[in-house]
Design a protein around this nucleic acid. Sequence first.
DNA 1: CACGCTCAATACCTTCAAGGTATCGTTTCG
DNA 2: CGAAACGATACCTTGAAGGTATTGAGCGTG
Lengths: 315, 315
Amino acid sequence: MDLRHLRYFIAVAEEENIGRAAARLHISQPPLTRQIQQLEEELGVRLFTRTPKGMELTQAGELFLEEARNIRSVVEQATERTQRAGQGKLGRLDIAIFGSGILGTIPRLLLAFRNDYPEVKTVLHTMTKAEQIEALRQRRITVGFNRMLAPLPDLATELVATERLLVAINEHHPLAREESVPFQSLAEHPMVLFPTGARPNFMDKVMRLCEAAGFVPQVSQEVGDAVTGVALVAGGFGVCLVPESVTALTLPGVVFRPLQDAPANASIDLSCLYRADDQSPILSAFLETVRAFRDTQTIETPADIRSATGWDADM
Amino acid sequence: MDLRHLRYFIAVAEEENIGRAAARLHISQPPLTRQIQQLEEELGVRLFTRTPKGMELTQAGELFLEEARNIRSVVEQATERTQRAGQGKLGRLDIAIFGSGILGTIPRLLLAFRNDYPEVKTVLHTMTKAEQIEALRQRRITVGFNRMLAPLPDLATELVATERLLVAINEHHPLAREESVPFQSLAEHPMVLFPTGARPNFMDKVMRLCEAAGFVPQVSQEVGDAVTGVALVAGGFGVCLVPESVTALTLPGVVFRPLQDAPANASIDLSCLYRADDQSPILSAFLETVRAFRDTQTIETPADIRSATGWDADM
DNA sequence: CACGCTCAATACCTTCAAGGTATCGTTTCG
DNA sequence: CGAAACGATACCTTGAAGGTATTGAGCGTG
């Protein structure tokens, strides 16, 4: 049996007349007669009773008509869904984020993607950078978000956002009195550093910046993630350099200050990481959304930073 | 798209290798390659990623595999159900019965049919003989049960059972004292007659029997159906000739007695009526069951009558 | 490094069935 | 009784499914 048989059968059943059905199907009458005969023979069932007026469905034919229409709609839905899946509009995207990735940029990006591709189910996995790379190799995830990425074989990256560095300061700390903090002045205060994970990491970046500025930071504590770091600032452990998006995390007693006379490289990239050989249309769609998102962010920067950094609230 | 495409696609998806899939499908490799290409082109979707090791499903392919398997099973079920319908094993049978038809033979027959063809839904309609004929003409029913059928054009009959006539008598009535009633003696007692419906009817039959025996019955009351007739017997309106199956209806104060020296034709046929041109396999199946049922009834008659007539209970 | 192995893809031929035209046999209706 | 309408049949044409032979690409191994 063939889908053509079903199409023909439905036409004949609906027209109750082989000639009209043939016209509707844009074929001539005899082939249609034969196709119907074939169908009946293959099923071993009389589907029509031939009357001088035309074709009339038998009870079995009546049932088969329902079934045929059902099959037709199931097939239509299947192709339609598959096509949507092929265009990256339907399916599942496994995404890895790092500890403090839930803050700031990433949720807004994910929301934008969800908005453009509502039928793609996004599944978030919290992973360290090393775990992400491993998971990408094993295809357990399709994209990972990260900072401080060294070039990796077989993996490609797409820049999501470039964030300035800010200083997290306890509100009673002397540096909190100024609206911005000279980078040099960090030399004189104990500093909390993070994360302690796989190199190169954000800690290395900070160390290099200090080195370039001609001092070695007084490390009061090393911690695993930004949330812990800011919490220690609240506890009076010292100051802490953080990427801008961490300001989404407001802790009582902590204020964020921009760097004054900051070195040109006092900023850090947030990128997403994916298999270079991955042709998945969902990934393409996601990367496309990332690029669009990055552009809108760049344009909207001024207003965005004012609210995102929480200056108004702190002043 | 074609069901063949789906079959081929499933094979390739399962084997992850065109060569092996081709072997499994008993075709050679190149046509299979082309069919898969065709399918992808028609859908506009890459279903497989070609690797040196073989064929690997894309995400869209994964989805389409599920859909394809689903379609396959839907089609299988459709053909299977249609075939059962074509063999009269699945479907619906609209049956007409007359007022007191719920008594005795018919329910047992229907039960037997239900047992042989559990997936045929039987729908009962209560109709008079005239209504049945009309409904058969309009195809609103497929079979009707009736007594006293004159040959009808376009309609055929099948004998279901031949029932003896019994006399329903009030237990205080003088005739109730004997174990059987001489037909002649009915001449001396008022008689309830039924039904008053379309001729020829059971009333005509009784009149002819009396005429043959040389008397005219004293008609105390004419009623529409057997149930009412027997109820009037209970109320003392006289005796009433009834078909054997009416004994299934036990009313307090009423006993049933066989006829003694009954004329050879003191019996009445229960038949079912159907369109002579009806080729429906369900009807054929039903008529087959009727014939089988009629035979078992004939064989089992002795024991059957003893219990069905209720003699034991009345004696 | 080259050779062979294993894939899928391509080229080209064959065949069978789907589709077309012409015609027939019935039944119905004017 | 002839015309019209309907499905069935006979016979021809063609396109696509299937077959064989071969190519080309990636991998592993001697």
